[in-house]
Design a protein around this nucleic acid. Sequence first.
DNA 1: GCTTCACTTAGACTATGTCTAGTTTAGACA
DNA 2: TGTCTAAACTAGACATAGTCTAAGTGAAGC
Lengths: 144, 144
Amino acid sequence: MTAPTPVETQLRDAGLKATRTRIAVVAALRDLGGHQTADEVSTALAANDAVVSRATVFNALDDLTRAGLVMVADAGPGATRYEWADRWHHHFVCTSCGAISDVACPEDSPRCVDAPGVEGTVDDVQVIFRGTCSSCIGPGAETT
Amino acid sequence: MTAPTPVETQLRDAGLKATRTRIAVVAALRDLGGHQTADEVSTALAANDAVVSRATVFNALDDLTRAGLVMVADAGPGATRYEWADRWHHHFVCTSCGAISDVACPEDSPRCVDAPGVEGTVDDVQVIFRGTCSSCIGPGAETT
DNA sequence: GCTTCACTTAGACTATGTCTAGTTTAGACA
DNA sequence: TGTCTAAACTAGACATAGTCTAAGTGAAGC
């Protein structure tokens, strides 16, 4: 018997079972890095001999998000993108090429921006910066 | 011949034709208020005897967004929500009931939050506050 | 070892958004 | 005012994302 990994501990702390699938999903997101769709996660799992059904991937990502192990990277319409919740940060979306990059959160905290006049409790704040990334501005920029 | 409305002027300024459909879409969003899906806009147009195809609604909303007449209210997965771009603001999403409400932007500007370390140009910043709204906190709260 | 219940599965289903080719129309210009 | 052209609109097929359901599986508590 080996000691539980931090992922297993965090899952149990969130009242969830530390199943093979969930651990594999976290590992896949950590290994892949960046911002992956549910479909990309599913493909990565399959490549690691851990074939899981679509519904299970969605369920697992949803559970892991609530457990704080996975972050949703909102980038507008299209497939929802997930990433390993290493540290709290925001996102920059290039409106030209669609690339998503991380933007460091100065306070590394889900409550980094003040919410004036919100009637309710704020759990976290996601900031999305939209614009044109340096590679699209530079010479040979895509003009889609 | 009547003088062009502000909507018509803004469309032409953006290099777009001021068609009946586009004007009707803006009017529908303004009249409905709040955050509407493409489907809801389509239904509202149909109710006003302005039946348009789904593709046209998506095209029109896309064009109007680029013209600055319509704002996209990102609220995570699900249908994209649009609203009349009255003034720049952010959004509060209740994770319990899914309601979206506007949060005044202190600076009323698309560049209200600093983007530290972004490699590129930032055109606008959208802040999404997530939490529980007052009606879900209070007695008789929904527990969906 | 037994029991319970959360988790997983397959796949049908719904919702959302895109694409294409032909038709219509707004707006420029003579 | 009439004509022309490119942009906009249409219908509907298609693609993709996400949800739902019912039955099977297995982890964890007793």
